[in-house]
Computed example of a mutant assay.
Amino acid sequence: MSEEKSFSFTLFEPHRTRLPKNDQPAIEVRPNGRIVFNKQATQLLENNSFCMLGYDPANRALGILPLGELKPNTFPVRYAAKGAYIGAKKFFKHFDILPSQLLETAPFKSGEFIGITL
């Protein structure tokens, strides 16, 4: 009988363990001018189909005012399976605040507005 060898096996584990999904409300501002709501943040829109956008330069904050009807200067809210988004490139260009890279932040309520800091 030969002497016993010591083996050190590495397990086949090609799939990385996933981090738990973020279940906190989050809003992304993308370089293409889209404001993207995750599923939790979408609830803040209360199923409204339109919104108006405002900018507070002193606090570098964006205010989203959900509205139920189309009015002048409103942006449509588009709902998807995993959340919602607003195409707002004109807004960002107007205030010259289009981010150069993706920005993700937690929303806050300010009166009737959903706010995010940029």
Rank of each mutant, 00 (worst) to 15 (best):
E46S: 13
T10C: 06
P66E: 04
N32M: 04
Q43V: 05
G68I: 03
S49Y: 07
K90S: 14
N59L: 09
G83Y: 01
S2P: 15
T105C: 07
K93M: 11
D56S: 01
F95R: 01
T117A: 11
A80V: 15
D96F: 08
L44H: 02
A88S: 07
R16F: 08
G63P: 00
N48T: 05
D96M: 11
P57C: 01
C51Y: 01
F108P: 00
A106H: 08
F91C: 06
I64N: 04
K89H: 10
A81D: 13
A88T: 05
F108L: 12
Y85W: 13
Y55A: 00
D96R: 14
R34E: 15
L118E: 00
F91T: 07
T10I: 14
A61E: 06
G115T: 11
F37A: 02
M52R: 15
A88L: 03
K71G: 02
E104P: 00
N48D: 07
S100H: 12
I97R: 08
F91D: 00
R16A: 13
N22M: 07
L65G: 01
S110D: 13
R16L: 14
P99K: 04
E104M: 11
P31Y: 07
N38Y: 03
V29L: 15
N22Q: 12
E104D: 07
K5Y: 09
L45G: 02
L11G: 12
H94Y: 14
R18D: 11
V77N: 06
E3P: 06
H94V: 02
A58D: 10
G63R: 13
G83T: 08
A88F: 02
G54C: 05
L98K: 03
E4M: 13
S100E: 14
P66Q: 03
G54E: 03
T117F: 13
T117H: 12
Q40G: 04
G115L: 09
P20H: 06
K5H: 08
E13L: 12
G87D: 15
L98N: 03
S2H: 14
F12C: 08
A80E: 13
A58E: 12
A80G: 09
I116Y: 00
R16K: 15
G87F: 09
E13C: 06
T42E: 14
V77M: 05
K39P: 00
A26K: 10
F9Y: 13
F113C: 09
N32K: 13
S100I: 09
I27S: 04
L65D: 04
E3R: 12
F75P: 01
Q101Y: 08
G33E: 03
Y79L: 06
E112L: 12
L118W: 00
Q24G: 03
T105I: 11
F50I: 00
I27K: 02
A84H: 04
P14W: 08
T74G: 09
E28T: 11
F37W: 06
P14R: 09
K39D: 08
S8K: 13
D96T: 10
V36F: 05
L45D: 03
A41M: 05
K109D: 08
S100L: 10
P76A: 04
R16W: 02
L62A: 04
I64T: 06
